[in-house]
């Protein structure tokens, strides 16, 4: 069985950060990714809040840079799915689509997937007007009306992007104000092409072949309105990807992995970093620093395991 010091599952911001720090700590490091390195960061139209990069960069370019840096420090990158991670004595066995791999320590950096709204018609019209990716599907609705559901950073950023393409964006949020960072929210509120409806929920998506309308309900007045629209973009949070984990790993109520400030999970030698972890703030920069801490503490764990701890 192929064997590494450190195996990192997921090559998004957290995983690539861990790979770079792991490799630079002289660990034999492998990062495994099932889709494409960069993860959710790939979908960022303009990354403008990463400290030290004042000129906005697109997520693809940024991801390439991160990968190059990790590989230059000596990390190996593998493209495969990970079915399971289990402890076998003192080591871990990572089952990939291309066979098992042994590791002394593992960092889970599998990230999160978009949460669905659960509205009637959402599944039926997925890919036919219901979308979770503004940069992918926005251009199909150029000059038309679009609805955006959500009130966090993603919803506000994506509404801004879509406002450049749409005739008009109607933004629907169930609370009376945005959860997004203030500067991001302020931009949306002052955008003349975005109409914001607070304390409003989307109950149903209607259409024949594709989306034609959405049923909106005001939570305060109870008033129901059917709003014609060509597209509904949903940005209502994310679900941590924990399918491959050993079941004994502690998680919080939302399913995120609980760690301490060393990114250690409840299983010794198993670390978590980025959006999969229970954390108050999910940003590219926080994911990267999670990854750095996880790799650093994994190196210390391996030293202790081998009786070489620096005391």
């Amino acid at each position: 069985m192929e064997s590494y010091d450190l195996v990192i599952v997921g090559a998004g911001a957290a995983g690539l950060g861990a790979a770079q720090y792991g490799a630079r700590a002289n660990l034999k490091t492998l990062v495994i990714e099932e889709m494409a390195h960069g993860g959710q960061a790939l979908l960022i139209d303009k990354l403008e809040n990463y400290p030290g990069i004042p000129e906005p960069v697109d997520g693809y370019t940024w991801s390439e840079t991160m990968r190059t840096q990790a590989v230059d420090f000596g990390a190996a990158v593998m493209s495969s799915s990970v079915a399971s991670v289990r402890k076998d004595g003192e080591r871990f066995v990572v089952e990939t689509g291309d066979g098992p791999i042994a590791a002394k320590a593992v960092v889970i950096a599998t990230g999160a997937k978009h949460r669905h709204l659960g509205a009637k018609g959402e599944e039926e019209f997925a890919g036919r007007g219901v979308s979770y990716c503004a940069t992918c599907d926005g251009p199909f609705f150029r000059g038309k009306r679009m609805i955006v559901v959500g009130g966090g950073d993603s919803a506000c950023d994506e509404a801004m992007f879509l406002s450049k393409l749409a005739d008009k964006v109607v933004m629907v949020h169930r609370k009376d104000r945005f959860r997004a960072q203030k500067a991001v929210a302020a931009r949306v509120l002052s955008n003349p092409k975005i109409e914001v409806r607070f304390e409003t929920v989307l109950d149903e998506i209607k259409g024949t072949k594709a989306v034609e309308a959405a049923v909106l309900r005001n939570l305060r007045s109870g008033e129901v309105e059917e709003v014609p629209t060509s597209a509904v973009f949903v940005f209502v949070g994310s679900i941590p990807q924990v399918d491959a984990l050993p079941p004994e790993v502690a998680k919080d109520d939302s399913g995120s992995i609980v760690t301490n400030d060393r990114m250690e999970t409840s299983v010794p030698g198993l670390f978590a970093a980025g959006d999969v972890r229970a954390t108050p703030f999910r940003q590219v920069v926080t994911a990267v620093s999670d990854g750095a801490i996880a790799a650093h503490c994994a190196a210390q764990y391996i030293d202790e395991l081998e009786g070489k701890a620096y005391l």
Binding site: M35, A36, G38, L42, Y60, C136
Partner: peptide, 8 residues
């Protein structure tokens, strides 16, 4: 221009 397209 579609990033997920480039991903797959």
């Amino acid at each position: 221009w579609c990033m997920p397209c480039r991903m797959i």
